[in-house]
Design a protein around this nucleic acid. Structure first.
Length: 827
DNA sequence: GACCTGCTGCGGAATG
């Protein structure tokens, strides 16, 4: 045992803590100079597992004088995706450092750090610095930044799974490639910490890049046998449970029973407005929870959210209704129960949420799944199976993001400047740009120095100047603008909600406030508010005594059901079909399947329950027209693409206008006249041949790319969004990025940013890869076509989606949906 | 650039 290791194990003993097995492994790997990835869940002591071996290595390198104050500069750089985490981790590390008597400083540097503190950091280096990917790049944009990292020994990326697969991750890869380049004569140890995902090996590969020798890399898996128990909340009367919907508020009583039996509960909802609705619902029906209940979502003010986290930590709250804003987060005390309302859409996400419950190590986590409509209940069974089979989603790394690269090059030019050949070699060591071609790199260089082919007339695009081969920004204005717009997160313009008496509650979208008149009341942040006036992008409000109010909705991403969960759902459905054939669903092991028996019987009677080897298509005629329902069970985005693709291919036979609707399970094509389905099937509707062409034809690919280009232009630094706090109209920004898109499209056919926009639309909007795989799967299936007189249980949720889209809501949609229960069907 | 239900995340000047 080395001296360092001895000191560390003594420290553990003194604390009375047990060491996890991976702690030992970590020590060995770290002391032997490996880089790698630690796979460990939150709350498993991973920070110590990483930090203590680092200390041990330091002690071993300085055996005689490690307790003496020296100016050896920054030793460890610790990067997290969340500002708030830097504070928590700093406290933990501070404890260690003080306990061991090390004369070290542990500091953090994020957007919260004051200008004065930043100055001090520059003057006197702390030994350990905690920061975010964005702040790292801001440091790289400072003059003489290499000095700062001269003594750096190791770099740790915490919660790497959160960054992998995002442009923030790519930006971090670039920062890493620079730090490795600065330390190229010695070895910089690079470590990632990641929760369990489907592609851990790839995650390590992406983080470490291709310049660390394979024999110096290892992956350590913390085997912590955390038991997770999942229970679906079964509607008491399934016959009266709605076939469609997304709120799940019908099950409020059952959920509150769970809450009442737990000391603390987290209720996860899928959308921000849904959490407002649940909060309001609870307050209305269970007023005794006022005061011990809170809400947490991304549009609430930070102060409010911090308070909630703090109160949860101190056990002052019994119940928090939240969105995934609490997914990652402050390492707060675990709660008794976790409740998930509606589909969690992915296995890993559900696991992470479930992991929030269960107190001490070794304790069982308990999570409840609450369906929001009948068929969704089957997802509960699929989830359990997926977790038992350890089927986790992968996070696919982003490669060749030209916008992020462009920002990075300007960053380097802002500080000390760069030589292209050198930087090209450097970034080629990263996973993201390993395949970058010199031609593309050159186009970007050309763009930042001369505005490329089309923008050379405009000074604002000529950012970087070349002198003796050195690319450098000399204009103070350009440098300032660049520092002001760093990062890869592009946000919409939001309206702040503020009390006239002062105090901000959070933000809502422009669109929502534009629907309101002065004097209207709306429900936000768990309060009923009256709109008083609207000024400078701020909505001033006061508390209202009224009970009713409109609830804001926000435009967010539409996360599709993951392919893992979809696949398990298809498996479950297959089991159901087999059981129904044998007339024995009551014997099925899953409580969800048993509960859904009447629904499946009806589906079977009206249409068909597809086996895994079958592809069900339903025909149905209503006063709205001819409906075709397809059920690939592949997630919403794939269905969106597939619906357009099928519509396009069918319309080649006969010109018809289609109206489309979809959900995570299937999609609908609606027409005024009968569709020639059989004929279309014969002409190979599911073919992957000419897929790209057909997609381009069927969807407005240009419009999709234009939307993607907006973010790309922001990240690449083509538009300046103004000084902080000074709002700029979103319409204005929209117009300028749109204009750039048009100009590039017309005059520069090979523009890398425009190409990227099309690529992103294909990859992320259409999930082209998944679509292709899905089509290939469908080709092998036996097609079953049924015709029914009324919408089937499978069809109904999609039909409802279509109804709201078509705005046929005369007798409120809600009423129509409410009527559609089994009970109604039977009568 | 649209709202059909749709998440999360970070940064940041100079002047008066």
């Amino acid at each position: 045992m080395t001296r360092g290791q001895k000191i560390i194990s003594e420290w553990y003993a003194k604390k009375g803590w047990q060491q996890f097995s991976f702690q030992k492994e970590m020590e060995i790997a770290f002391l032997d100079g490996y880089s790698g990835l630690l796979n460990a869940p939150t709350g498993s002591g991973k920070t110590f597992a990483m930090f203590l071996p680092f200390i041990a290595a330091y002690i071993d390198a300085h055996p005689d004088d490690y307790l003496i104050r020296k100016d050896n500069g920054l030793q460890l750089l610790w990067i997290t995706p969340l500002r708030a985490l830097t504070n928590d981790i700093r406290k933990a590390m501070q404890t260690v450092v003080e306990d061991l008597g090390l004369p070290w400083k542990v500091a953090s540097r994020t957007g919260d750090t004051s200008a004065k503190e930043k100055q001090e950091l520059k003057k006197k280096q702390p030994e350990v610095l905690l920061t975010t990917p964005e702040s790292l790049h801001l440091m790289l944009a400072q003059k003489e930044y290499p000095k700062m990292f001269a003594g750096l020994q190791a770099l740790v990326v915490d919660e790497w799974h959160e960054l992998l697969g995002t442009k923030r991750g790519v930006q971090l890869e670039l920062g890493l490639s620079r730090l490795k380049y600065l330390k190229r004569d010695t070895t910089l140890k690079v470590w990632g910490i990641s929760a369990t995902i489907g592609n851990l090996e790839e995650a390590a590969e992406v983080l470490l890049g291709n310049d660390i020798p394979a024999e110096r890399i290892c992956i350590i898996r913390a085997k912590l046998d955390k038991k997770i128990v999942i229970e679906s909340v079964i509607p008491e009367n399934i016959e009266e449970f709605s076939w469609a919907g997304h709120l799940g508020i019908k099950l409020l009583p059952q959920v509150m029973e769970i809450v009442s039996k737990s000391r603390t509960t987290l209720i996860f909802t899928n959308t921000r407005s849904q959490s407002e609705i649940w909060y309001m619902g609870i307050l209305d029906k269970y007023p005794e929870y006022a005061g011990v209940m809170a809400m947490h979502h991304g549009s609430l003010d930070n102060d409010l959210r911090n308070w909630v986290e703090e109160a949860l930590h101190n056990e002052m709250l019994r119940l928090v209704v939240c969105t995934s804003s609490l997914d990652l987060g402050v390492d707060f005390r675990p709660v008794d129960s976790v409740v998930q309302i509606g589909s969690p859409k992915g296995v890993a996400r559900f696991m992470q949420r479930a992991g929030r419950s269960g107190h001490h190590p070794g304790a069982t986590s308990k999570a409840w799944f609450v369906p929001t409509h009948s068929l969704e209940l089957l997802e509960g069974a699929a989830l359990k199976q997926a977790i038992a089979d350890e089927l986790f989603e992968s996070r696919d790394p982003i490669v060749l993001a030209m916008d992020v690269l462009m920002q990075y090059l300007v960053t380097l030019a802002v500080s000390d400047g760069f030589y292209p050949a050198e930087v090209f070699r450097e970034i080629k060591t990263s996973f993201a740009y390993a395949d970058l071609e010199w031609k593309e790199f050159h186009q970007i260089l050309d763009f930042i120095t001369s505005g490329g082919k089309t923008l050379s007339q405009y000074d604002e695009f000529l950012k970087v100047e070349i002198a003796d081969g050195l690319y450098k920004v000399n204009s103070r204005r350009v440098a300032m603008h660049h520092r002001l717009s760093m990062g890869t997160i592009v946000s919409d313009v939001n309206i702040r909600v503020r009390f006239l008496s002062g105090g901000s509650l959070g933000t809502i979208e422009e669109y929502f406030i534009s629907k309101l008149k002065i004097g209207d009341t709306f429900w936000f942040a768990g309060r009923n508010l009256e709109l008083l006036k609207f000024k400078d992008m701020t909505a001033f409000v006061r508390k209202s005594t009224g009970k009713k109010g409109i609830i804001p909705s926000w435009m967010g991403g539409r996360m599709p059901l993951s392919s893992q969960l979809s696949s398990k759902l298809r498996d479950k459905l297959d089991e159901v079909a087999v059981m129904m054939d044998h007339q024995s669903p009551e014997q099925h092991q899953d409580i969800e399947v048993r509960a859904l028996k009447p629904l499946f019987e009806l589906q079977s009677r009206l249409s068909h329950l597809p086996r895994k080897t079958e592809f069900l298509i339903e025909k149905f005629r209503s006063r709205d027209g001819f409906h075709l329902f397809f059920y690939p069970f592949e997630g919403r985005l794939v269905h969106e693409g597939m619906a357009s693709l099928f519509a396009y291919r069918i319309s080649k036979l006969k010109r018809v206008n289609f109206s489309l609707a979809m959900n995570d399970y299937g999609f609908e094509l609606l027409t005024d006249e009968e569709i020639l389905l059989e004929q279309a099937l014969e002409m190979d509707l599911f073919s992957t041949e000419n897929l790209l062409d057909d997609i381009q034809q069927s969807l407005n690919a240009t419009e999709m790319a234009r939307r993607k280009f907006r973010d790309i232009a922001h990240i690449a630094g083509l538009v300046f969004t103004g000084f902080p706090g000074k709002g700029m109209k979103s319409r204005h920004l929209q117009a300028s990025t749109s204009l750039l898109f048009d100009v590039f499209s017309e005059y520069e056919s090979d523009n890398v940013l425009v190409k990227q926009a099309y690529q992103e639309a294909l990859q992320f909007q259409l999930e082209e890869f998944r679509l292709r795989e899905a089509l290939q799967r469908l080709q092998k299936l036996k097609i079953v076509i049924t015709r029914s007189e009324q919408p089937t249980p499978f069809a109904f949720p999609i039909l409802v989606d279509g109804l709201s889209r078509e705005k046929l809501i005369t007798e409120t949609l809600e009423e129509r949906v409410a009527k559609m229960t089994l009970k109604y069907q039977k009568s």
